[in-house]
Computed example of a mutant assay.
Amino acid sequence: MRDLAEPELLLEAWDQASVAPVAGRGAVLVQLAGLCPDLDSALDLEVGECAALAALAHARAFGREVAGVITCSSCAELLSAQVSLPTAHELVAAAATRPQQAVVAGFTVRAPTMRDLLAAAESPDRACAVLLSRCVRRSDGSPVDPAELTAQEQSLLDEAAEAITDDTLPMLGMRCPACDYQVRAALDIAAVLWDRIDITAPALMEEVAVLAQAFGWSEADLLAMPAARRAAYLAKVDT
């Protein structure tokens, strides 16, 4: 596994993920962290598998503690929550019991992959239909035409797909202080990992810019410099 907080890799991750489709950022980061051999393999991961690997990458680079914001489904209050990402042992144990598919009302529903999410994101007005056509099969193995599904069938299939995915993700949970409702929501670990990179990389670039201007050092020299030493030089610039 590679540490995404290492300066050169951090900037590479920021470069690549910032121009990637939002739905594909998790796959990009997992591959750059050395947890998949290539991007194609990362895109073929189930959403839950990619989330598990993103959790490992986050824990290595930024630690296991993450913060999130939940919207109360009862009163729409915005709530701040803290969660510890699973350990590697917990992720392996969860993977062993992860449901690969569900059979609902004569249909077989499989967990969506990152590639499925990308396909859905390309047609946002038809995202649900795209996922249904890619991830659902009839009992005889034939594909499903979402337009032929009844509203009840579509609702059941949506619930089954959501359950398969949510079972693999850490959950944020707390009681809403405004209405006392118990709120729970799945944590998008890939998005959390990207948020940390999107904050940390520009801050590093700002350090490099200040020090390069002050001392004439190259970016490569500054990225190779230990963080504590960069901070010491920054303090000298500030004074």
Rank of each mutant, 00 (worst) to 15 (best):
S133C: 14
F107T: 07
T87W: 05
A119I: 01
R137H: 05
R115N: 03
E122F: 10
V104T: 12
D158K: 11
P146V: 13
L117T: 02
S139A: 15
V104Q: 08
D158F: 08
Q82D: 15
R115H: 06
T150Y: 10
D116V: 06
V109L: 06
T97I: 02
A105E: 10
L85G: 10
P146Y: 05
H89N: 08
S139T: 11
L91G: 02
E122I: 10
T97P: 00
A147C: 09
S139K: 05
A94G: 10
A111F: 02
L117F: 01
V92T: 13
P143A: 11
A127D: 05
A96F: 00
L91V: 04
H89S: 09
Q152N: 10
V136W: 02
G141N: 03
V92R: 15
L132W: 04
A111N: 00
A147S: 15
D145E: 15
A88D: 13
R134T: 04
R110P: 01
P146T: 13
L131W: 03
C135M: 05
E148S: 12
A105M: 08
R98D: 03
V83C: 07
S155M: 04
Q154G: 14
A127F: 08
G141A: 03
Q82K: 13
H89Q: 07
A96S: 06
A127N: 05
V103M: 09
E122R: 15
S142D: 08
A119G: 14
L118C: 15
P146M: 11
T113D: 03
V103G: 04
S80M: 13
C128T: 09
G106H: 09
V92L: 09
L118H: 13
E148I: 08
V103E: 07
R138M: 10
E122D: 14
S123H: 15
C135K: 00
V103Q: 04
H89C: 07
A96V: 01
V136M: 08
A121I: 00
H89A: 14
A147M: 11
S123R: 14
F107H: 06
M114R: 13
V104P: 02
P86F: 05
P86I: 07
E153G: 14
A94T: 06
A81Q: 05
A93L: 10
M114I: 14
A120S: 09
R126E: 15
A121N: 06
A147V: 11
T97F: 04
D158S: 14
P112M: 06
A119D: 11
P99S: 10
A81F: 02
L91K: 00
V83D: 01
P124Y: 07
P99T: 09
E153M: 11
L157D: 03
F107A: 04
L149P: 03
F107S: 07
A102R: 14
L132Q: 07
S142K: 06
S80D: 12
A129R: 08
